[in-house]
Amino acid sequence: MPEVMFAGPDGRLEGRYHHSDTPNAPLALVLHPHPLHGGSMNNRVTYSMYRRFQEMGFSVMRYNSRGVGRSQGRYDGGIGEISDAAAALDWMQMVNPNSTELWVCGYSFGAFVGMQLLMRRPEIRGWVSVAPPANDYDFGFLAPCPCSGLMIAGGKDTLAPESSIRKLVDKLNTQKNVEVDYRVFEQADHIFAKQIRQITDAIEDHVTVRQAFFLSVEAEED
């Protein structure tokens, strides 16, 4: 789990990167929760998602956004943090120039940043959003959402209420060629203290299904 430092738009950013042994392996970028509420790349949910992508054979990265840990700069209300995510993605693509499958995965505030990145980078083929703060942030920018993905909510989450996430899912599912795999863990609050394994199992299940779909589409094109 090598430590990496890479250039961000407001100074150097600190990350952890695992390079897959598989040539041209798929890539995953994992984004942490809100930095003003203790969010960092070492958050338990963030770390667990990172590990599961690693176990699935991905080259995967988690990193601290500006002002967190050893990353330079200061919190920028989400705007600069989107630029940080883009810089992390640039770094991964520089290291893996021939990889053709890219996923973005975020938890809480990281889910908001990840979905913003999704709209800016058409090469992203899949996404995972865990407890996106749909009641605090306007996700109307997902119009249209460029691809399908996985969304996870906690039934007892008071910070990112399931009802607000469900409204977002319903809206996305009306869009052409978009299908949100929506999973609600009824006993989970925003911390998901007892549902980490459920989250990572859901991610593996969803990614496996989507990868089979990618292969079928590629076979038809050939």
Rank of each mutant, 00 (worst) to 15 (best):
N64K: 07
S65T: 02
S65N: 11
R66Q: 07
R66P: 06
G67D: 02
G67P: 01
V68N: 05
V68E: 01
G69V: 01
S71M: 06
S71K: 11
R74S: 13
R74Y: 12
R74M: 11
R74H: 15
R74L: 11
R74Q: 15
R74W: 06
Y75K: 02
Y75V: 04
G77S: 03
G77H: 08
G78C: 15
I79G: 03
I79S: 12
G80E: 05
E81G: 04
I82W: 05
I82T: 15
S83N: 11
D84L: 12
D84I: 04
A85S: 12
A86P: 02
A87R: 12
A88P: 00
L89W: 07
L89V: 09
M92V: 11
M92S: 04
Q93S: 12
Q93A: 11
V95S: 06
V95P: 00
V95F: 02
V95C: 05
V95G: 01
N96F: 07
N96W: 01
P97E: 05
N98S: 09
S99Q: 10
E101A: 02
L102Y: 14
W103P: 04
V104G: 06
C105P: 01
G106F: 13
G106C: 13
Y107E: 10
S108W: 03
S108K: 02
G110A: 14
G110N: 07
A111E: 08
